[in-house]
Design a protein around this nucleic acid. Sequence first.
DNA 1: TCAAAAGTGTTATCCTTACACCCATGT
DNA 2: ACATGGGTGTAAGGATAACACTTTTGA
Lengths: 314, 314
Amino acid sequence: MNPSVVIGLSAVIVAIRDGEAVVLTVRPEAAAALPFGPFAPERDRTFELALREFVSSQTGFELGYVEQLYTFGDRGRDAPRAEVGAGAARVVSVGYLALTPSASADTVWAPWSRFFPWEDWRKGRPDLIDEGIKPALMAWAGKDAGRAARARLAFALDGASWNEERVLERYELLYEAGLAPEAARDAARADGRDPAEPAAISAALGEPMISDHRRILATGLGRLRGKLKYRPVVFELMAGEFTLSALQKTVEAIAGIPLHKQNFRRVVERTGLVEGLGRMDVETGGRPAELFRFRREELQARPALGLSLPGVRD
Amino acid sequence: MNPSVVIGLSAVIVAIRDGEAVVLTVRPEAAAALPFGPFAPERDRTFELALREFVSSQTGFELGYVEQLYTFGDRGRDAPRAEVGAGAARVVSVGYLALTPSASADTVWAPWSRFFPWEDWRKGRPDLIDEGIKPALMAWAGKDAGRAARARLAFALDGASWNEERVLERYELLYEAGLAPEAARDAARADGRDPAEPAAISAALGEPMISDHRRILATGLGRLRGKLKYRPVVFELMAGEFTLSALQKTVEAIAGIPLHKQNFRRVVERTGLVEGLGRMDVETGGRPAELFRFRREELQARPALGLSLPGVRD
DNA sequence: TCAAAAGTGTTATCCTTACACCCATGT
DNA sequence: ACATGGGTGTAAGGATAACACTTTTGA
């Protein structure tokens, strides 16, 4: 008999709804969770097939773009037993990122700002950072200069500049500082107690999720923000026809920072990856906007999108 | 009783020796292999600890910089049974990339050009591409325009430009085209036969490795080449003191392309991540070179290295 | 004195960033 | 007419890529 390892698959499924980046969650009545399911070695030929299968049966949703994120195997932060229904097995979870152009009006789609409210800088620096996070992290750091420096760089405190990609680093810091409800839960489990998952109350520092799902979500958001800059993945979030403003709004929602309109257009045009259709959008306020489509056939030839998100300082 | 999954860990351990990028291999007498070992769920707290443990006990080597690459779980390309000593278990392998500044003079260090001879463009476009790879891929493509286009873009055929990061894409293409000995081996295993690993003859299209190790190696090389451009990982391959030429040689060995001396220096200086020591190197031919050190303390503050490797066309 | 490698000056070009302004539509 | 969002011109500054050239050592 083999030592027991059970592989779980979790998916960060991202879409855009009403200009907000949203992520598919399950069990809306309790603490939020990403869609997850077991990997059955005797049945599933590949991780990706298994993932598509259980997502479609669990949520009725067919995935398009999918990429592997990371495999989480640390003890103490693994999934609770019940999650995969195994006895005393060690749970290893393989996280995936998926992008889709359509999101239902269902409540299972949650804006990810619910879980990471400090990540949205589109309207400027969130007050939460200086009013909630900074004092809490400084109290945790105390006289430890290393901790203070990490906090400063992660959260752009005291004039440091914001790097939108470091989502995981920020979450891990809050976790380590005990400011994420998941930290207390995991500590209790490590002591042999069996705590309930944190309630889904809207915590000031972001809503918690079950197991290590918020960590997987942070990994997904960070990866996506990074990838935006050098691969044309945005288009996986767009419908077949879209306006350039809608494209910009999408990038802004993902990156969490505002972009300069004209520069954005120039960059997009220069890539040669979009094509104007000559037709106009059916209004959304002012002047009609031209519709564009993604020239997917060019993807192999010029796979870069070189969006250089400008540094946001304040 | 649980369905059996066994997790294996494999490491792509990279160093520089005599200006060549080399990778640590085991079993030099047979087909090459990366260092690998099982993950024991009841013993190992994290993947990374297990990895450091078995690498040090297997090769006597202490790892420094380590990062997770990818988790390979596809059936048909998994590790052979014997590798992890399990019965009928499904093998999932988690690949890691490790960098180290020191390589022994041992033969266990193999230049990776042995496995991917087409990846070294430092002396210009390798003849192998047009003389060996192109005809073979064209024969495989036949009248299939899609296949021909993929080959063209991956291997920079017919004027397409070379992208040094697409190492995995190139290997996968050769595998799919049946030009990697591993492909025949895996096909045989899928049919229920039990073929020996390919012999370690120096194949024209690169030496094969056991199991999916060459794929893991390709993943590691691609990741490293990409990361070079935006994270200061090169320094993990350097000793405490080094000359700028040595640094440049290292980047060239990894990226596989030649760099412009002065532009390289300007970029490195602008990052502020190196500091001249005022002392000189003890000769290597001509004029003595100044020694520099990596300012590791600046790593948190400015984590970018922005090496923009210029496009190589021919 | 010559080979070998270190190190510097300069320039055209392109990209990034940031101004401010005009255009087409519905109310 | 005016509010709303779509769409454009232009220019400063900086980074990139590519020239060719000087300097310092050992043989």
